[in-house]
Amino acid sequence: MYELSCNATMFKADIDNARAILGGICWSQGLHTFKRLVYYAGPPQPHQKGLPNLEHVTQIPPPPNNQPSRPHPAWNALSDELTRSSYVLCLAYNVSPEKDFGSEADVDLNTVPGTLQWFDFPDPLKGQPFTQRRKLEIPGQGNLPMVMADNKYEFDKELIEETWSFVKKDEKEIPTKGDFEIAFTRYFKLPETDVEPSTQVVRLPAWSDLAPLDPAENWWVSIRSFAWEEKKPEEVKKAASQILEEKTNFDRFFKFEPVDRKDLDTRVPPPSRTM
């Protein structure tokens, strides 16, 4: 699919007012989520083509009636993309500040469901105020760190993401997955250690020990529309029209700025290439 977005920043002190405004616009209190984001970098080119080893891919929960677990069809689509270039992939896991942070129990991310995320290098702006890039997600996957290791992907970094998201629905239509989304997001770093980790941590620290990625603790504001059928030009055009219309509505609340596409480059450079 294609994700089209306009982005801005918002002061920490404005989050409650912003949530109240969006709650009125969307008739919703918003969805408050926390995610553990673990990034893995693919081997620099030249490297093996795609994802040749999917032996350990599993589905969580498992298929009903003891049916064999087969890789989601999107794995093949992702593998095709990775034959062209090596990328940093993201493993996203839902977490709870009350239950998962500061726990004394070790966590094996191979045993819990995660979502594999891939973002392509954004398209050129071409005079448009929004960022447009291809995105692929494979939810409900087990053994993701194992699959990364099987395919020579190396641990890169880990962040915690906190998000308030709101969905704006068209009252004239039946709600669909193409609804327009507004999200407020901020990121946290794990405490630094004296030893460089070779993989993700097995225990998350207490929530109070996390450090904001942005020292000012500003929130990242994103308004997004989606073209779910990326091979249909009319779907991409519809998503572009939608985000331009909504940007006009939200311009009075936020100052949207174009994002340098190079700042969103998830490609892994070959050894001879400098970013």
Results as ranks from 00 to 15, higher is better:
170 D>G: 11
88 V>M: 10
130 F>A: 09
194 D>C: 00
201 V>K: 01
2 Y>V: 04
7 N>G: 09
151 N>G: 06
192 E>D: 09
233 P>S: 10
240 A>T: 04
41 A>N: 02
271 P>I: 03
209 D>I: 02
267 R>Y: 00
119 F>C: 05
86 S>D: 01
97 P>G: 07
261 R>M: 03
148 M>E: 07
223 I>S: 07
269 P>S: 04
152 K>Y: 03
153 Y>Q: 03
216 A>Y: 09
246 E>Q: 13
1 M>Q: 03
171 E>L: 15
75 W>N: 08
118 W>Y: 12
142 G>T: 12
12 K>P: 05
181 E>D: 08
112 V>W: 07
199 T>L: 07
184 F>Q: 08
267 R>N: 00
10 M>W: 06
227 A>E: 09
167 V>P: 01
261 R>L: 04
40 Y>P: 03
110 N>P: 01
119 F>N: 05
59 Q>G: 01
27 W>D: 15
31 L>T: 15
85 S>V: 02
40 Y>L: 12
271 P>N: 05
218 N>R: 15
149 A>I: 02
70 R>T: 13
56 H>E: 01
75 W>S: 09
135 K>D: 04
122 P>I: 10
69 S>Y: 07
270 P>M: 13
115 T>G: 06
74 A>E: 11
78 L>C: 11
147 V>K: 00
124 P>L: 06
218 N>Y: 10
43 P>T: 15
137 E>D: 12
233 P>M: 08
269 P>Y: 08
226 F>W: 02
64 P>Y: 11
22 L>F: 14
86 S>H: 04
134 R>D: 10
34 F>Y: 15
220 W>S: 14
265 D>I: 01
272 S>V: 00
47 H>G: 08
98 E>F: 08
63 P>R: 11
180 F>M: 13
153 Y>F: 14
93 Y>G: 01
201 V>L: 02
105 A>Q: 12
272 S>W: 09
178 G>A: 15
143 N>S: 05
27 W>E: 15
59 Q>P: 02
254 F>G: 02
146 M>A: 11
262 K>M: 08
219 W>L: 06
132 Q>P: 00
194 D>V: 05
263 D>M: 11
167 V>Y: 14
188 F>E: 05
211 A>Y: 06
126 K>C: 12
26 C>M: 12
248 T>C: 06
80 D>R: 14
154 E>P: 00
117 Q>K: 13
54 L>F: 05
59 Q>K: 11
211 A>T: 13
131 T>C: 12
119 F>R: 07
56 H>D: 00
216 A>G: 07
67 Q>D: 07
187 Y>A: 01
231 K>A: 11
229 E>R: 09
101 F>N: 06
115 T>C: 14
110 N>D: 12
141 Q>A: 03
20 A>D: 15
51 L>T: 06
196 E>K: 08
59 Q>C: 07
192 E>M: 07
72 H>V: 05
71 P>M: 06
147 V>P: 00
227 A>C: 03
139 P>C: 10
230 E>M: 04
31 L>P: 00
114 G>F: 10
253 F>T: 07
198 S>N: 13
